[in-house]
Each structure stands twice: as C-alpha cells, then as structure tokens.
C-alpha cells in the first residue's frame, strides 16, 4: 500500500512515544549514568569513565554466563524450530479439532513463568515428580538439583515444553495461509511429501519463521524466572544465565556501576542480533 506523507501523523504516535520514552528512556539514562560513575552514597559519586566496562568485560562471571547463554539459546533454536514446524504440520487444518488442538497447545504459553518453574520443580523431582520418578525407574540416575548435566537438560526440556508451542502456532498460522491450490498443483505434479514441504510449505513459512527465530532468540536470551525457580541457577552456577547474573549483581550485591555496565552490554548484544533479524523481516515483507 502506498502511504501518504504527513508529519501530522506524529500526533497519533505521540502517546506511545511519551509512554515508552517514560518507561524506557529515563531508566536507560539512569543506567548509563551509573555505568560511568562510582557511587558511595547520596552526593558522593565519582566519574570513572569506562572503568566499569573494562572490569565487567574481564569478569569471568559475565564471560561464563554469556557462553552458557549462547549455548542455551542455540540449543533452544535448534530444537524448538524444527519441532515446532513438525507439530504445526501435524495439526488438523480446521474445524473443532483444529480449535481444540490450538488451545491445548497454547496452554503452556499462558502459564505465569514462575509457575512454569514450579510445575517443573515438582514434575522433575525424583521423589514426588512423575518425570524424575519415571527416569529413575528406567534405571537412569537422575537428579536435577545435584547433577550439573541433569539440571541443564531439565532447564532445556522445560524451555522446549514451554515455548515450542509458540513456534508451532506461528508455523500453523503460516501454513493456514497457503492456498489449497498449491497443494492441488503439487499433487498433480506428483510431488513427494518432501518436495511439497521443501518447495511449497517451507518457502511460504519464511516470514513466520523469521519471527519465530527472533522471538525465541530474544526471549531465551532474557530467560530468568523459570530456571531461577527450578534450579536457582545451580548446581554451582551451571544454569545461571545472563539475566540472573545481572540481577544478582544489581540487587543481591548492589554493585551498581558494574551492573549498569553489564546491562548496557547485555542490551547492546540483544539489540544488535535483533536488528539483524528485524532487517531480515522487513526485507521479507518487501519481497511479498
């Protein structure tokens, strides 16, 4: 659609602008302010330049949790995207069965994140949880509160449980938008199931998949509450991701300067990667 040039449209955007500016710009300025000062108390602040940034970049905790974060987000995408596509392909196309599937699959998305943590905290325990008990019954020694690998896998499994539905629903809506004529033509052309997926469904899922990857990357990169409730970041710091490291630093230790510098670096990483995705989306929109 050709848009009209009219700067008066700013009046319509103004409320959003003011609201978001209030909620985002002021806090962001505060963060920037902290990140370049050392504050001892009211009126006792010293300008320290980039010192906090240098210190935080050299901080082992940040580096470790950053690596953990990337590995985690990587696995999240690697598992959830194909699984989500698979689920979407299996969902009934319409009717009451379709609606029912949609709602049941969406349930994990509607559960408060701390409750997600709680559910898995209970579910995965060896003594009172079905999952932990079941795994132990199979003769596999499993204890997510004690074993690093178990804890890590449990957090990953929880995230897969929690968020694959989002990918599935996105892909489902993408699949629904493909006209029936394409399937008919493919059937006539004797395309195999694989060819239908590869040449008809996948290309048309491109734009929703970009959104799915974007959302899943962002949200997994900010994950906090669920592992916090489930494992508390442990054992040791094996499931401590960026947000938790930051929160501990800012609120737990009240290490304001370093926390602020951390925040900015964190934000910039997310922003940079998201910008790449965003460019990809608008590009895809244009091609349509």
């Amino acid at each position: 659609m050709n848009k009209i040039s009219d700067n008066r449209a700013w009046w319509l955007v103004l409320p959003v602008f003011l609201l978001v500016a209030f909620s985002a710009l002021i806090p962001l300025m505060t963060v920037v302010n902290y990140s370049v000062q050392d504050i001892f108390g009211p009126g006792q602040a010293f300008f320290v330049g980039t010192e906090w940034f240098k210190s935080i970049l050299a901080d082992q905790r940040l580096q470790d949790s950053l690596i953990r974060q990337f590995v985690f987000s990587g696995f999240v995408l690697l598992i959830q995207i194909p699984l989500g596509i698979g689920v979407a392909l299996m969902m009934p196309k319409s009717g009451i069965k379709g609606s029912l599937c949609l709602i049941l699959i969406a349930i994990p998305l509607l559960i408060p994140w701390n409750v997600v943590g709680t559910i898995w905290q209970i579910f995965a325990r060896g003594d009172i949880g079905l999952f932990g008990w079941g795994i132990n019954q199979l003769g596999i020694d499993y204890n997510y509160t004690g074993d690093t690998l178990d804890a890590w896998l449990t957090v990953l499994l929880m995230d897969v449980w929690h968020w694959t539905p989002l990918v599935a629903l996105l892909c489902y809506s993408g699949l629904r938008a493909i006209p029936e004529a394409f399937y008919q033509a493919a059937e006539i052309d004797r395309a195999s199931k694989w060819a239908v997926f590869r040449y008809i469904q996948l290309p048309r899922l491109k734009s929703v998949l970009i959104i799915a990857v974007l959302l899943r990357f962002m949200d997994s990169f900010m994950i906090y509450i669920e592992p916090f409730v489930l494992t508390g970041g442990g054992p040791g710091s094996s499931t401590t991701f960026l947000s938790q490291t930051l929160t501990t630093m800012a609120i737990g230790q009240f290490d304001l300067g370093r926390a602020a510098a951390f925040s900015l670096i964190y934000f910039l990483i997310v922003l940079l990667i998201s910008w790449l995705f965003f460019t990809a989306i608008t590009q895809a929109d244009k091609e349509k």
Partner: peptide, 24 residues
C-alpha cells in the same frame, strides 16, 4: 491439470518450475 488461476512455485525459477513435475 492446469488451473484457472496460475499456480507457480514462487521460490523457484521458471526452469525449475517446468522441470519440477519431471523431476518428481
């Protein structure tokens, strides 16, 4: 069968479109 409205596989080139049924 040829349909009333064009159905083309838009991720492919014209050549690939025409070759598609043969490949299958």
């Amino acid at each position: 069968q040829v349909f009333q409205f064009p159905v083309i596989y838009d991720s492919m080139t014209v050549y690939e479109n025409l070759a598609f049924p043969l490949k299958n």
